[in-house]
Design a protein around this nucleic acid. Sequence first.
DNA 1: GCCAACGTTGGC
DNA 2: GCCAACGTTGGC
Length: 153
Amino acid sequence: MFWVFKTEPAECSIADIEAAGSAGVVWEGVRNYQARNFLRDQVKTGDMVLIHHSSCAAVGIAGVATIIAEAFTDPSQFVTDSLYYDPKANADKAPWVAVRVGFVRKFPRILPMADLRAIAGLAEMQLLKKGNRLSIMPTTNAEFDLVLLAAKA
DNA sequence: GCCAACGTTGGC
DNA sequence: GCCAACGTTGGC
């Protein structure tokens, strides 16, 4: 399948994923149930991911990654001084999962949302929908291809 | 910093 | 289990 993952580049940017090399990075800290369900149930090894930089100066799609390890228990939910600590989580009941993400490609420039909105085939893309707040969301193969095409322009 | 949209919480 | 109040997200 094809996905869009949102990330604040100050936390984990496409460059950070690239720097992690073949080990990839642990995609942790997802604390929304709908996003968690995608991560736990549908994100599979080999799936392709558009990496979207949010809450920063240059908002937009920054590159491509791939899933190198499927859902496992998110370790950060147990770390008391972590931003992602969940006091309700314990060994018996650990609601949050993480995946491991590996670098594929960094776009020559960030693709801003305004550019994406101008592409007819992306009218239904979930990332572009008003009020969208999901940090893990599916996208279609066709949308994925259109974004790659736009990245070359 | 504004504000729309959505999620979460908690009283009843 | 309803729903108002509150918190958070995130583009602009």
